[in-house]
Computed example of a mutant assay.
Amino acid sequence: MNIMEDGPSLIWGVVCLALLISSLAARRLPLGYLAKAGLAWVAIFAALFAVFSFRYEFMSIWERIKADVSGTAGQNVSGDAIELRRQDDGHYWLQVEVNGNPVRFMIDSGASFTAINATTAAETGVQIDANGYPVILSTANGRVAANRGLVKSLRVGPHVITDHQVVVSENFGDTNVLGMNFLDNMQSWKVEANMMVLQP
């Protein structure tokens, strides 16, 4: 807390409290009532002063809550760079717009292609090649069959990838993965400490 910055507010609060006490005293109310009323107003002023003093901390907490709810926690698009902080599960997550729809992806450099589960593909209008031969993929849950698909627009902030090839399967569970064909669209990408930086 900055004393110089919050000093005028503190003085103003004390003045208001003194005026309030003087007003109550002038009405010649019972001493017990005055004491209770005074303590109540002291508590109110103290709470307001605490909120004002720690307003930046409260704003930071609110921004963190909004990021957790929206799925953009640990994600920062700054200029030409996309910065991702490693999450508690040890992975890097990126929210992108798939054909205009927000979707949260885990980034996996061990996956060859971007993988989208069937539910997400249906909700975002991914074009699926149902007539082509299925692709057999090796996953953590074993080998699964997937269809090839196409995302017309994949957007992260101002950065857009068009006609992005993906694989789609009901066997991917709830997770969507950005694979190497997504990272290959970047000019560069690197991991340092607990940060991943993508340079589109």
Rank of each mutant, 00 (worst) to 15 (best):
Q127T: 14
R155E: 09
N2C: 03
A40I: 09
V135K: 07
W62D: 10
T175M: 15
A130M: 12
A67D: 14
L39T: 10
Y33H: 10
V168C: 07
G38T: 14
G173A: 02
I107Q: 03
N185T: 08
E63V: 03
A40E: 06
F45L: 08
L24A: 08
V98W: 00
D129H: 11
V69P: 12
P30H: 11
S53E: 13
N99I: 05
S188I: 03
N2K: 04
V15I: 15
N194E: 15
L150V: 07
S188L: 04
F105V: 01
A115P: 04
V166R: 00
G90L: 15
Y56N: 09
K152C: 03
V98F: 02
A67G: 06
R143F: 09
M186S: 09
I3R: 11
S153F: 05
A130L: 10
A25I: 02
L24W: 13
A81G: 03
A37E: 04
E97I: 02
V77W: 00
I44C: 05
G71E: 10
A35G: 11
R86N: 04
D6I: 15
A146C: 06
K190H: 15
N181S: 12
H91G: 02
V42K: 03
N181R: 14
A121Q: 07
T114R: 01
V151G: 00
D163Y: 02
E63G: 05
A40K: 08
S153C: 07
E170R: 15
L10G: 15
R55F: 03
Q127D: 12
I11A: 14
I21C: 13
A46S: 13
I11S: 14
D108R: 11
G179N: 09
G179W: 02
F58H: 12
G179K: 04
R55C: 02
A25S: 08
G179M: 07
S169F: 07
G79L: 04
S112R: 14
S22W: 12
V96S: 02
R28E: 10
G100L: 07
N171V: 08
A130R: 13
I107N: 03
F52I: 12
V197K: 11
R104K: 14
A121V: 14
Q95F: 10
L48M: 08
V167W: 00
S138F: 00
V160Q: 08
Y33D: 08
P134Y: 05
Y33Q: 14
M180I: 15
W41K: 01
R85D: 09
G74E: 06
V166L: 01
K152P: 01
A118D: 11
T139H: 06
L94E: 01
R27Y: 13
I161K: 01
N99T: 00
S53H: 11
N117I: 00
D89L: 09
G38Y: 13
L10R: 15
R27I: 15
L34Q: 12
Y92N: 08
V126L: 12
V135C: 06
A73I: 13
M196T: 03
A25D: 07
A122L: 05
G71P: 01
P102K: 05
R155T: 06
V103R: 01
T72Q: 08
V15T: 13
E192D: 14
A46N: 08
D108P: 14
N131V: 07
T139I: 03
N76Q: 15
A118Y: 06
A81T: 10
M4S: 14
G100C: 08
G110A: 11
V135N: 04
L24R: 11
A37D: 00
W93V: 02
G79W: 01
